[in-house]
């Protein structure tokens, strides 16, 4: 499946010898984006997903304008208030405006997820590419290390990293970077493995040989030629991963290892709402829906993307 990644199809038209690598790269990027949009319209799921993601990103972008209340200001006299013109989504057990909390929390959650996935890619991609490109001893050593990390079962790696990082004296947004670090670090081995398997295939292809003949250094070939071609499966995995990361953050919040209160956080707010789920179920509805919506968006989009990038399934 990997050997038919679409990057190969777009390659021929950009190899002009007078171009600098950066411009080549930018050109390719532009091309693939344009092609991507053309392709996107062919898949219904990814169109829906893309629309949902666009909505999410717009809301995140305009959060400061949309927020109606200070999301951490408490007022016990108005606690557990129902939906009203004053509080669009009602108030939580401390009398905080849920609408504002969902917005600000969303901005945070989406930012953390995107950064975490990006961090995992930045860490894992070069690792995997080098491992796959050089092969042999480098590969053997690097992959055993990756295997060692992948053997870490389930949530336990996150639990350990988050517990470990809790004590670092970090405040505000920097505190969220702990989650970025933990979630990204745990994603990196998967990226590395995926990149490596693509790189193994790519390294044997003719264009690599051609680049060698043209006298490019090995490391340059690995990063300028092979790495871009490993991107597409990783982008798909990354998109689906975004949704997964949101759920992991929620699970960590449930276990008490999320961000410290009163920072708005979908997972923590949903988790706190479970105390009142029999008497005031409305508190849970909006953070819960927000989580479902974004996970769904990333999954739909990622799924559609996978179908598009995998030509065998392209007819759907």
């Amino acid at each position: 499946m990997m050997e038919q990644a679409p990057g190969t199809r777009q390659r021929v038209d950009v190899l002009r010898p007078d171009e600098t690598p950066l411009r080549v790269w930018l050109h390719r990027l532009r091309q693939s984006v344009v092609a991507g949009f053309r392709e996107l319209r062919r898949s219904r799921t990814s169109t829906i997903g893309a629309a949902m993601i666009t909505f999410l990103l717009l809301v995140c972008l305009f959060t400061p304008a949309l927020v109606t209340h200070d999301p951490i200001k408490t007022n016990y006299r108005e606690r557990l208030a129902p939906v009203s013109a004053e509080h669009y989504f009602g108030t939580d057990k401390f009398g905080r405006d849920i609408y504002s909390r969902v917005l600000v929390g969303g901005q945070r959650t989406i930012t953390i997820s995107v950064l975490a996935v990006a961090f995992g890619m930045v860490l894992g991609l070069p690792f995997g590419v080098i491992s796959g490109f050089y092969g042999k001893a480098v590969d053997a050593v690097a992959m055993r290390f990756v295997d060692g990390l992948l053997a870490f079962p389930g949530l336990l790696l996150y639990l350990l990293i988050v517990t470990l990082a809790r004590e670092w004296k970090l405040e505000g947004f920097w505190n969220d970077l702990i989650l970025v670090f933990a979630l990204g670090f745990a994603f990196a081995p998967q990226v590395a493995r995926l990149a490596r398997s693509t790189a193994l295939v790519e390294a044997r292809k003719e264009y690599v040989e051609a680049a060698r003949v043209m006298g490019e250094r090995n490391i340059m070939i690995a990063f300028t030629q092979i790495l871009p071609n490993c991107m597409s499966p990783i982008i798909v995995t990354g998109t689906v991963r975004l949704g997964f990361v949101i759920l992991i953050i929620a699970a960590l919040s449930f276990l008490g290892l999320g961000t410290s209160p009163p920072t708005p956080d979908w997972g923590a707010d949903l988790s706190a709402a479970r105390d009142h789920m029999e008497s005031h179920p409305m508190i849970a509805v909006f953070p819960g829906l927000a989580i479902c919506f974004s996970v769904l968006a990333f999954n739909l989009f990622g799924d559609g993307l996978r179908d598009l990038l995998d030509p065998r399934l392209a007819d759907r």
């Binding site: 949704g243 759920l247 929620a250 699970a251 449930f254 997972g267 949903l270 988790s271 479970r274 849970a284 819960g288 989580i291 479902c292 919506f293 996970v295 769904l296 999954n299 739909l300």
Partner: peptide, 11 residues
């Protein structure tokens, strides 16, 4: 199946 994936487990 998409709903199954998108609901937080604890909830």
């Amino acid at each position: 199946s998409l709903l199954g994936i998108s609901i937080p487990e604890f909830w």
